[in-house]
């Protein structure tokens, strides 16, 4: 643990430094435009000339304005501290003020996305496990289903997202929860199915032979050998699956004009030109993904240890 912790922190620190340094060149044009409008002494003075000037020359000629780029309301690239502050303002500070479920709180939006993720994950995992069991049991189904499962992942789901929403609203299903969960399960089922197929086929010939000497029936062989043997594979793919389900829930919010959820925050931030809202929603999504994967990882650890497997 400590062997990787120090390098990881170092790399993270390096990324933060690069990010911080990149803010100056990214924001210099906006800063200079604002300063020129406020009557500041900017070189070159004309907006057209500034547009043609290189970023480096702008930086060198206007050293006194560089600091301004780190404190813009609508920066092209916000600083890490700005993103952190915005994140705190929309989560922790909201809780302290007792407005956790306000429409401006990222906890509220995260909860909406988490719900779709959960239903999508549940549906996707069920379909994936069911598909894997069918494929392992029947060779006909294996040959007909597996190629289509692979092709289904090559179809960009986002192309289908608006369609799914049209279809489900015409079918009389209100709200965006269902289509979002469906999109999320579409991305989630494939890793689970692939992992489960591998897992159910993991027992080797010796183990299968041993069960035969116990005169185990096909069902017993399946339940007592194949299913337990598949669990490590299942958890590995569940971790991929839950991250994919979150991606699906957010993608499901993007092209559909949703008004609540982390994806909707990104969309609204884009439409209203508030980059800080986009960045904080992105980081909230990243934190959510991290929490979900860690939870599954811990469950895997505890469960497999209880079952006597080395993890």
């Amino acid at each position: 643990m400590t062997r990787t912790l120090f390098p990881v922190l170092t790399v993270l620190f390096g990324i933060l430094v690069i990010w911080f340094l990149a803010v100056a060149p990214m924001n210099i044009r906006v800063t200079l435009d604002q300063a020129a409008r406020a009557g500041g002494d900017v070189v070159p003075t004309e907006a057209v000339e500034r547009r043609n000037a290189s970023t480096l020359s702008l930086l060198l000629n206007n050293k006194s304005y560089i600091a301004g780029g780190y404190d813009l309301d609508r920066p092209r690239l916000p600083t890490p501290t700005q993103v952190g502050q915005e994140l705190w303002k929309t989560t922790g500070a909201m809780i302290l003020k007792g407005r956790t479920w306000s429409k401006r709180s990222l906890i509220y939006h995260g909860w909406i996305t988490l719900q779709s993720t959960f239903w999508g994950f549940l549906l996707g995992t069920s379909v994936g496990i069911l598909g894997a069991v069918l494929v392992v049991k029947s060779r006909v189904l294996e040959m007909s289903l597996v190629p289509w499962a692979i092709i289904s992942q090559a179809v960009p789901i986002v192309a289908l997202a608006p369609m799914i929403i049209v279809l489900s609203s015409q079918a009389g299903i209100d709200g965006r929860g269902f289509p979002k969960a469906l999109i999320s399960s579409y991305l989630c089922f494939f890793p689970v199915m692939v992992g489960m197929i591998k897992g159910l086929r993991a027992p080797n010939a010796e183990q299968l032979d041993l069960l035969k000497t116990y005169s185990a029936s096909g069902q017993q062989q399946f339940l007592k050998l194949r299913v337990p043997a598949s669990l490590p594979y299942l958890f590995t793919s569940l971790k991929i699956g839950v991250a994919a389900a979150l991606v699906g829930a957010i993608v499901g919010e993007l092209p559909t004009g949703a008004i609540s959820g982390l994806g909707a925050r990104i969309l609204i931030g884009d439409q209203f030109g508030t980059p800080l809202a986009i960045w904080s929603a992105l980081f909230a999504a990243a934190i959510l993904a991290g929490v979900l994967v860690t939870l599954l990882d811990r469950t895997q650890h505890v469960l497999l240890r209880k079952m006597g497997m080395r993890t």
């Binding site: 062997r3 990787t4 120090f6 390098p7 990881v8 922190l9 170092t10 790399v11 993270l12 990324i15 986002v158 991929i240 991250a243 979150l246 991606v247 957010i250 993608v251 993007l254 982390l262 994806g263 990104i266 986009i278 929603a281 992105l282 999504a285 990243a286 993904a289 991290g290 994967v293």
Partner: peptide, 17 residues
């Protein structure tokens, strides 16, 4: 050692955002 865990994590993020 430092970049692999971070890369793995970022690869799982909803980068389309």
């Amino acid at each position: 050692r430092g970049l692999l865990p971070i890369g793995n994590f970022v690869a799982a993020l909803p980068i389309v955002g």
